[in-house]
Simulated scan of single mutants.
Amino acid sequence: MPIDLATALAAPPAVRTISWTRRDVLLYHLSLGAGRHADADPELAYTFERDLQVLPTFAVVAGRTISVGDEPTAPAMRMPGIDVDLRRVLHGGQALAVHRPIPPAGTAELSTRVADVWDKGKAAVVVLEHRVADADGPLWTAQMQVWARGEGGFGSEPGPDTTWSAPDRAPDDVLDSPTDPGQALLYRLNGDLNPLHAEPAFAASAGFDRPILHGLASYGIVAKALVDGLLDGDATRLRGLAVRFAGTLVPGETIRTSVWRDGDRLVLAASCPERGDQPVLSHAVAEVTA
């Protein structure tokens, strides 16, 4: 079905109630590697329910639930004006702005709308905006860029210029985050059961040697590295993180995050040192507070 831009942009937001518990937050942190070296540092701020702090990037999985026996699925892309074959969908980018610290348990209202659709010729980029608020007001706003192959040519604008390069100087900081071979199997329990991250035969059919780590897992791992390495372990100081997904990572490989300081902004680039620093995340900027 061709994309109907006017219908997509005019559709009212889809609204639903989401909730999460401390267990959900603990699982999310563990799936990013928190407590990996529990004999030396159990990282109780992430792994123990008392005085639990919440990484802002938990927002991307909050309210997602699965049950034993669920069939593996990918995110649906059917909404007014848009009906995209899921086999053509790639998660192209993610942005998040946190308006105040996320509570370790809560209930909130999630409002989702199509904020824009860009025509890339051979593909379309659907920009989904998620706004979340609880009884005390706005909690976070997130934008997800979905690359839909073969869905271009509907006559919209191509979107902003995507040219990007890291600053032309040595990074101010370099943070290495090792991953575990089974990390994707744990991360998928946050709600993304796509077999690409678990089943070798399915990964091979998609052109990969083995299952790959979720892009949003890399996103969260980088966020944790920033909090631990540059923000004194205080997750509330990370107020926003925007990235493009530039390449894949195999569980067991390392994410190397290069950081250039620019006031309250951190310009980032993440790569895989085991594969010659091939890009993992690009166009990356973190907003932080002192």
Rank of each mutant, 00 (worst) to 15 (best):
G69D: 10
G69R: 05
D70Y: 10
D70Q: 07
D70R: 06
D70V: 09
E71V: 13
P72I: 03
T73L: 09
A74Y: 04
A74I: 12
P75Y: 11
A76S: 15
M77C: 11
R78S: 12
R78N: 09
R78Q: 13
M79N: 00
P80C: 11
P80R: 12
P80N: 07
I82C: 11
I82G: 02
D83C: 04
D83F: 01
D85A: 15
L86D: 09
R87S: 13
R87I: 03
R87E: 12
R88Y: 02
V89H: 00
V89A: 09
H91P: 05
H91S: 06
G92D: 02
G92W: 03
G92M: 08
G92N: 00
Q94T: 07
A97K: 10
A97R: 15
V98S: 00
H99E: 15
H99D: 13
R100D: 04
I102C: 00
I102D: 01
P104T: 08
P104A: 13
A105V: 06
G106N: 06
G106D: 06
T107K: 11
L110N: 04
S111K: 14
T112L: 12
A115Y: 04
A115V: 02
A115N: 06
D116G: 04
D116L: 08
D116I: 10
D116C: 06
V117K: 05
V117T: 05
V117W: 09
W118T: 07
W118M: 04
W118P: 02
D119F: 12
G121F: 10
K122S: 15
V125F: 11
A133I: 05
D134I: 07
D134N: 09
D136G: 14
D136H: 14
D136K: 10
G137M: 09
G137Y: 12
P138L: 07
L139S: 11
L139N: 13
W140K: 06
T141M: 08
T141E: 15
A142T: 07
A142G: 14
Q143F: 05
M144V: 12
V146K: 01
W147R: 08
A148S: 13
A148D: 05
